[in-house]
Amino acid sequence: MRILLVEDDHEIQSFVTDALLGAGYEVDAADDGQTASSLAAKRSYHGMIVDLGLPDLDGIDLILQLRHSGVRSPVLILSARRSVDERVRGLELGGDDYLTKPFAVAELLARMRNLLRRHSSVAEDPTRLHVGDLELDLLKRRATRAGDVLNLSPQEFALLEYLCRNAGKVVTRSMLLADVWGMRFQPDTNVVDVHIYRLRGKVDLPGRSPLIKTLRGIGYVVTAA
């Protein structure tokens, strides 16, 4: 599991990173909110640890930005702010748990394990698919990215659904022709290329991290990494 750690105190960042790595997690660390936002836009995280006293913006504002962009990873807030009002505010505005400084590493790891376990038990929804900030509602046959509805044709939705069900895996043109279009032979057709081109124009708009990637001569892959 991969964790995003957002902490500007390098000493705390270092020993928390070491503790997470020792517990078997993969860790990406950020010193400020802008770096954290950039990392979260490029890949999905199972959980995040966010300090509130960041140099460029308040940690609460960062959490709100991430939630608005579609990031649903559970967040453990790490802060020296100890008042009840501050803790309540953090939990009401997008945090899932709150740990005050100074803290015991053992407690941080226990809270992280609990968050991940709790989130995995409620977050798995067979009617929805997620890749980064892209979400597919399989019941309503609706796709959104960062909350914005994508105007897809039924065939484009079917193609995107297939790619998302195989997120992180390379799918070939032959696989798409067989499984999306039902073509059990390989005619001389560019139907896959045309639909991928149109789909990419709707999903990967300028300013957004591209999710649909082409591996020339091999196939396609959808990934937020």
Rank of each mutant, 00 (worst) to 15 (best):
D188Y: 05
R111F: 10
R216S: 11
F157S: 08
L39I: 08
E92V: 07
A110Y: 08
S153I: 02
A36W: 04
T144M: 06
L139A: 14
G59A: 03
E156S: 13
P74R: 06
D125M: 03
S69P: 00
G47W: 01
G95L: 04
V105G: 01
H10I: 08
H195M: 12
G47C: 10
L108Y: 07
A123F: 03
P206S: 02
I12M: 12
P210E: 10
L163N: 11
R145C: 06
V105P: 03
G147T: 09
V180S: 03
D32E: 14
L152K: 12
G94C: 09
L150E: 08
A19D: 02
T35C: 09
I63Y: 06
I196V: 13
R117I: 05
A36F: 08
R145Y: 05
L116D: 00
E124F: 03
G207D: 04
E161D: 11
G59R: 04
V71Y: 02
D32I: 01
G24I: 10
V170C: 07
R200A: 13
N166V: 03
L150S: 05
P102N: 13
A146T: 11
L76F: 06
Y98W: 09
L152I: 13
K202G: 06
Y98E: 03
L52H: 05
E7H: 11
Q13H: 07
Q155W: 00
R142F: 00
P102E: 12
E11D: 14
T172K: 13
V105R: 08
L62Y: 04
P187G: 14
L91G: 04
D97P: 01
D8K: 09
E135V: 14
I63Q: 05
S69T: 12
G53L: 13
M175Q: 15
L136N: 06
S44T: 14
R141C: 10
L211M: 07
R128M: 12
